[in-house]
Write a protein that binds this DNA or RNA. Structure first.
Length: 572
RNA sequence: CGGAGCGUAGCUCAGCUUGGCUAGAGCGCUGCGUUCGGGACGCAGAGGUCGGAGGUUCAAAUCCUCUCGCUCCGACCA
């Protein structure tokens, strides 16, 4: 491809609306342009990389025994009512009403469609396991699209779904897919880690996320040197040591006018936050419940929902709280709070002589002792891990960092098959709900994560496997000798199967070198009069400072060899 | 959805506080010339509903109201 004929609009300055590195570089290198918030056009160069990522995924999915199919983007709203996810997804679901007044959903994912498909076409355990995937544009009306292509309203996703008679069989496929994911991300040249994850509205039991650690990520990773790794929603920290044997004091009421926050209380009572018990009033699937958390800890709603056995929890509004506690917001406490179930965090259990709200406006209780002053009917880990916490497995200090989620695998169980009636007959002729797994990869995120973690001041550095072109010919000047050499190199490299971008523009050398670095092609061959005077051209990898001088025919050999060996290295 | 900020040439921005000549700069683009190994230079040009609507005024990019879009923080979320 000759650059002069290609549509590669590079720009010198960072776009004003870009914040993260990958976003800036993708625009500057002419990979993409924004149409609207969370919607991007992939230009030819960017699309080449995206297609290469797609190809790698296809190969690995096929090798793992999955079969590719293609489902519709538009889906009947009725399907989503049946699965119960119309509500669960809420406003994130893009939908419209068609001319007949039917609600149509733009697919944010395809569990409903695939489960219906399989329900209608699979009826025997003999047809299992079945593993199906597609690569398709997904739609989500995100509250806040951001970070360039990392969170968009429209994105490319590989989604796979597997169907099984037994949990053991699911686990076999789950492991195969897990391994395939590792190969995919390895081949894309990414440094990633795998963490235990919460499954969110997809639902299900076990789940792992594939994360690329980088500051630009919006997920928080919690890791320990012992190998423990989880995302923040899932992470468990060790329960703090039981407090030294402080002898229990008597309950005492204290006037604390207007002190409704932990911060105000610590000042007023002159005790540290870890001596306070926060009493949070929430609604679990609409029913009130209270959660007790140590003053310096944060509630993890997902864990609480799990512990309470509900699908969804939200903070109760002020009116509800006042009605239930008999006090203004900020003065709730567990003592005498009999109207609603109380779930106590593990860290609260061992506290002694704590302070809590008195369920009386402008009053707090001191000397509160769990177990003595209120019942510990339900104790669970319901807090977020936080910096300074210890690992629950080895006691080491937990490390917090940011990451980009590029893939996610779930053991779904029977959530969708039961809702949508996907059954098969087992060997005894008995009806069984299908057990499902599902597996997703964000292709655009792979691209962005590669740039995010692999760029330098000059621009992008593509791994050979997903580079839009493998080698760039930088032709300096337009003299006959330079031109014929470049032409010959282009033909010879192409004949050897190399993907060549030929910068034949009449721009000055500096412009070409800077553009070549910016778009990050792994190998560069410079054809200029200087080296040609000695019959040479220059070969330089993107990551090296100094070029190597070679005769053109040798440069072709060397280039082809480097490409070969790098592609092979990625083909684990 | 709560908070903050921004919208002027293809891009990055100045001008707005204190209303007033023909609305500017750099980059990019077109033509000509000189250059040519890490983002050259000269000359000549093209390119603008100042996001949109309404209002105040003799006069609005500038002041007021409404509205749309975009970005960031929060909340939410594969």
């Amino acid at each position: 491809m000759k650059w002069s004929k290609a549509f590669i609009p590079t720009v010198k300055e960072d776009p004003s609306d870009a914040e993260v590195l990958s976003h800036k570089l993708m625009v500057r290198a002419g990979l993409m342009r924004k149409l609207a918030a969370g919607a991007y056009t992939y230009l030819p160069l960017g699309y080449r990389t995206l297609r290469k990522i797609e190809q790698i995924i296809r190969q690995e999915m096929d090798a793992a025994g999955a079969q590719e199919l293609h489902m519709p983007v538009i889906q009947p709203g009725e399907l989503w009512e049946r699965s119960g996810r119309l509500k669960a997804y809420g406003p994130v679901l893009m939908n419209f009403t068609d001319r007949h007044g039917r609600r149509v959903v733009l697919g944010p994912t395809h569990e409903e469609v695939i489960t219906t498909l399989v329900a209608n076409n699979i009826s025997s355990y003999k047809q299992l396991p079945l593993n199906l995937y597609q690569i398709q544009t997904k739609f989500r009306d995100e509250y806040r699209p951001r970070f360039g292509v990392l969170r968009t309203r429209e994105f490319l996703m590989k989604d796979a779904y597997s169907f099984h008679l037994t949990l053991d069989d699911l686990k076999i496929t789950y492991q195969k897919m897990y391994d395939a994911y590792c190969r995919i991300f390895d081949r894309c040249g990414l440094d990633y880690i795998v963490v235990e994850a919460e499954s969110g509205p997809i639902g299900g039991e076990s789940s792992h996320e594939f994360m690329v650690p980088t500051e630009a990520g919006e997920d928080t990773l919690v890791r320990c040197s012992c190998g423990y790794a989880a995302n923040l929603e899932r992470a468990t920290a060790a329960t703090p040591q039981k407090e030294t044997k402080e002898s229990p004091k008597d309950l005492r009421e204290m006037h604390t006018p207007g002190a409704t926050t932990i911060e105000e209380l610590t000042k007023l009572l002159k005790v540290p936050a870890e001596k306070l018990i926060k009493t949070l009033v929430l609604l679990g699937d609409g029913k009130p419940l209270a959660a007790l958390i140590r003053g310096d800890h944060e509630l993890n709603e997902a864990k609480l929902a799990h512990a309470a056995g509900v699908a969804n929890v939200e903070m109760a509004d002020a009116q509800t709280i006042e009605k239930l506690t008999g006090a203004a917001v900020g003065f709730a406490g567990p003592v005498g709070l009999s109207k609603l179930p109380i779930i106590t965090d593990k860290a609260v259990q061992g506290m002694a002589n704590a302070a809590t709200g008195a369920n009386k406006t402008d009053y707090h209780l001191l000397g509160v002792n769990p177990g003595r002053d209120f019942a510990l009917s339900s104790v669970a880990d319901i807090r977020l891990a936080q910096p300074g916490d210890r690992c629950a497995k080895c006691g080491g200090e937990l490390q917090f960092s940011k990451g980009i989620e590029i893939g996610h695998v779930f053991q779904l169980g029977t959530k969708y098959s039961q809702a949508l009636g996907a059954d098969v007959l087992d060997e005894k002729g008995k009806t069984q709900p299908l057990i499902m797994g599902c597996y997703g990869i964000g292709l655009n995120r792979i691209m962005a994560a590669t740039i995010e973690t692999g760029a330098d001041e000059q621009g992008i550095i593509w791994p050979m496997n997903i580079a839009p072109f493998q080698v760039i010919l930088v032709q300096l000047g337009q003299s006959d000798q330079v031109l014929t050499t470049a032409q010959k190199l282009y033909e010879d490299l192409t004949a050897r199967g190399c993907e060549v971008l030929w910068d034949d523009r009449s721009a000055r050398p500096g412009v070409k070198f800077n553009d070549a670095d910016l778009i990050g092609i792994p190998l560069r061959i410079t054809i200029g009069e200087k080296a040609l005077a000695n019959g040479n051209v220059e070969l330089k990898p993107r990551t090296e400072k100094q070029p190597q001088l070679l005769e053109p025919s040798r440069a072709v050999e060397a280039t082809a060899k480097i490409i070969q060996s790098e592609l092979k290295a990625f083909n684990i």
